[in-house]
């Protein structure tokens, strides 16, 4: 078993879900409480990665991160190399790819916080940010854990986006799902099975954990 690919994947998934935990909160707050009439458009954009083929997302990200785009050019000027085919390129792609898996459970749990508690907090002198920190966040812990775990699990298994923007560079961008693909290509079914089994078990354990902490709801989707 290629432990390098394994630990690279764990590192990627941890980093991505940590970034999403921080970046997803303000997005989820806005989605949960904004009354803007065009909000549904933003919600659609956030949800896009669920339905979009990973290759489509990967392709546009590759273009966006490449040296011909403003972002890619800026990054190249700053660091001397392109973002595509690097670990950090992979992180950016994965963050976008897993965004709905973090944001949607966050939004769902924010929306279940009783509005009266927010009003009470406000009349007790708390600003919106204080209310967020002291009422909404503590009451949304199951949703936050769900979002963190789901984005972690989702990043573990991604394939298309990684292949498009990361390629297959050992120790840099080769994740376990690509490793499995490589082993199958090389007819090493036993090795492929090993890795696949580990991924299967990890995914099952993580999902059991998510359903476990949300077991009162008993819904098909763990965050509903």
């Amino acid at each position: 078993m290629d432990w390098q690919a394994f630990f690279l994947t764990i590192r990627l998934a941890t980093l991505v879900s940590a970034i999403l935990l921080i970046a997803g909160l303000p997005i989820a707050y806005w989605v949960a409480y904004s009354r803007w009439r065009w909000k549904f458009l933003v919600e659609s954009i956030v949800a896009l990665p669920i339905v979009l083929p990973p290759t489509v997302l990967g392709f546009y990200l590759l273009v966006a991160l490449g040296p011909r785009s403003p972002v890619g050019r800026w990054w190249q000027q700053m660091t001397g190399h392109t973002l595509a085919f690097t670990f950090w390129g992979l992180v950016i792609g994965s963050v976008i790819y897993s965004l709905p898996f973090a944001v949607q459970p966050f939004v769902a749990s924010f929306q279940t916080v009783d509005r009266r508690l927010l009003a009470a907090s406000s009349t007790l002198g708390a600003s919106k940010f204080t209310t967020f920190r002291r009422v909404i966040i503590p009451l949304s812990v199951p949703g936050l854990v769900t979002g963190f775990v789901l984005s972690f699990a989702h990043t573990l298994g991604e394939f298309g986006v990684v292949l498009m923007i990361g390629g297959n560079i050992s120790g840099v961008t080769r994740t376990v799902s690509i490793e499995i693909y490589d082993q199958v290509e090389a007819f090493n079914y036993a090795a492929a099975n090993h890795i696949a089994l580990v991924l299967l078990i990890i995914s099952f354990v993580l999902l059991s954990f998510v359903y476990g902490i949300n077991r009162n709801s008993g819904a098909v989707w763990p965050w509903k």
Binding site: R116, L117, A119, A120, S121, S122, T123, G125, A126, V135
Partner: peptide, 17 residues
Amino acid sequence: PSHKRRIGYVFQDLALF
């Protein structure tokens, strides 16, 4: 804004945290 009004408000359902 409501958090600057210094008004004590006891809601019908109390809204304890």
